[in-house]
Design a protein around this nucleic acid. Structure first.
Lengths: 130, 130
DNA sequence: CAGCATCCAGCTTGATACTG
DNA sequence: CAGTATCAAGCTGGATGCTG
């Protein structure tokens, strides 16, 4: 598969089917993972704050997403044993690095949407509207 | 459609449920979209070359992915009317920008996998291996 | 080679109800 | 508030067969 003679190279390669990095990348770039990391990049948030910020996410999906990100070491969960309970989620240093790169992508895509929409019109037009 | 008074603002916001940027972001970061863009970042490739590079993708998914990326203006499809047919796919300028940012994320994740794997062990250990 | 059309198993997701 | 549990439904995606 990949050669690795001497110096340190990347032992992990997303292009390989079995590589665990693929799973992590999917947690990060998945529909809810990406938005969750993006939201947390601006600061720590509580569960329901996150839910409101990530428009459209269900309780279940948010919970599941947060577990995956926490397990991968990207998000830290801070639970206060008060009543009512208060739980804050925040990015770990690793999570901040990842979220930063992710946001760079997200912002670029947002900024390109006009071009994208025009491309779509051209594409759809050319082929008799599908 | 979108309001934009004077200075350039972002009319598009992925965090909003109805924003079309969400769809494009998903094309870009989706399991096969990300790997396809990543593969094409190094140069143009033919259909079956891509298929081999993106380990595990099916014909159907690759075809579908390429259509979505082409429609969004990220990938250009160049078909030679020869026999046997030869079709090359390559990134558009916009696609290159997007792929660059995506690869930055991908490489960072690949490079962080050891930390991620350790975080998982800690997480799984703490909770009785689930 | 470069695809498209169809079928369908199963995983993902949303709704709903319940717990601490 | 901060979740977990359960279940039905729908979409995803792989396998197969065919076309140009």
């Amino acid at each position: 598969m990949q050669r690795r003679p001497e110096g340190q190279e990347l032992p992990f390669n997303v292009f390989a089917k079995a590589c665990p990095s693929r799973g992590t990348l999917e947690h990060v770039t998945g529909r809810w993972g990406a938005l969750t990391l993006g939201a947390l990049h601006e600061g720590s948030l509580r569960f329901n704050e996150l839910r409101r910020r990530v428009d459209g996410v269900s309780e279940k999906m948010l919970s599941q997403t947060l577990h995956a990100l926490e397990r991968d070491g990207l998000v830290h969960r801070e639970a206060q044993p008060t009543n009512p309970p208060r739980v804050d989620y925040e990015l770990t240093p690793l999570g901040r690095e990842v979220a930063g790169r992710l946001l760079s992508l997200i912002h670029y895509v947002e900024g390109s949407m006009e071009a994208v929409l025009q491309a779509r019109e051209r594409y759809d037009g050319t082929r008799g509207a599908r």
